[in-house]
Design a protein around this nucleic acid. Sequence first.
DNA 1: CATTTAATTGAGACAAAATCTCAGTTAGAT
DNA 2: ATCTAACTGAGATTTTGTCTCAATTAAATG
Lengths: 143, 143
Amino acid sequence: MTDEPKPGTSWLADSLRQAGYKLTAPRLAVLRVLEAEGEHLSPAEVLERGRAIYPTLSRATVYRTLELLTGLGVIRPIYLGDGGPCFTYARGGHHHLVCSACGAVIEFNECVVGELAQTLSDQFGFQIKSHLLEFYGLCGDCQ
Amino acid sequence: MTDEPKPGTSWLADSLRQAGYKLTAPRLAVLRVLEAEGEHLSPAEVLERGRAIYPTLSRATVYRTLELLTGLGVIRPIYLGDGGPCFTYARGGHHHLVCSACGAVIEFNECVVGELAQTLSDQFGFQIKSHLLEFYGLCGDCQ
DNA sequence: CATTTAATTGAGACAAAATCTCAGTTAGAT
DNA sequence: ATCTAACTGAGATTTTGTCTCAATTAAATG
Ligand SMILES: [Zn+2]
Ligand SMILES: [Zn+2]
Ligand SMILES: [Zn+2]
Ligand SMILES: [Zn+2]
């Protein structure tokens, strides 16, 4: 028989477990939501989708779990200019062009911060896990 | 007689006027607050300080004015990890090291995105006015 | 497997932040 | 001076986030 895909085997779940937290059903629901679409999810969206998996999931647990994962540095909040915060994986980089006028967000891939990250790491004794590079301005349509 | 320093003569005021908006007393109060300390101001702080200048300033007007200036691309919201958004001038760059665990924010000055900005500008037809570069990780104390 | 215990939970009260409505006011054009 | 669309404050309303507490539960232990 092949190994059954145990629940709680993922980067996020491992992070929680290694930090000594319990892997409860409500938490696993939140993790599954984040893993299914780990980009730009607002707390409200996490709650809504999480309840599709675990119907009694409470708002408080969503906030508590997001806070927990943020503190562990595996996800992090960002603002996209359209209102409240949303959460994304805190791994590697996120690169956006954001239009001040219409709110459009374009993602790009070129990244130029590798060396700087190393320099800052040394200079400030900071252990860098991820970064966000955003340019603000006007998109073609809005100029 | 020398020219009296007319109200409504500033980068922010000029932006509003040129876009065809009225320069009202409540708006000027908000502008004065932003100009006095144009960094990292939350809407609540803007309201509080604005009322020291124009006592009946309303919360709604603060939000409306911040939204207006954001749409014009002269200020913009950023998230510092400590709660809600705050607003800063949308001119030049902002550079932060943010600790995921304790929320500490360190500012740095080295900037490496000039060329990339030009490239993206050309590639996407985007008119870039400002940028935000943030590194996330653990500060020396929290490692 | 049964017991134990501290971590975690949901519900709902609560607080804070943001949005909306509308009658009255005003900047700026004419 | 007049006019009018833009703008305003007050307060109702909605949305978002926090807190408390009794009940539940994961996981360690024997
Ligand atoms: Zn646009
Ligand atoms: Zn990058
Ligand atoms: Zn720290
Ligand atoms: Zn820069």
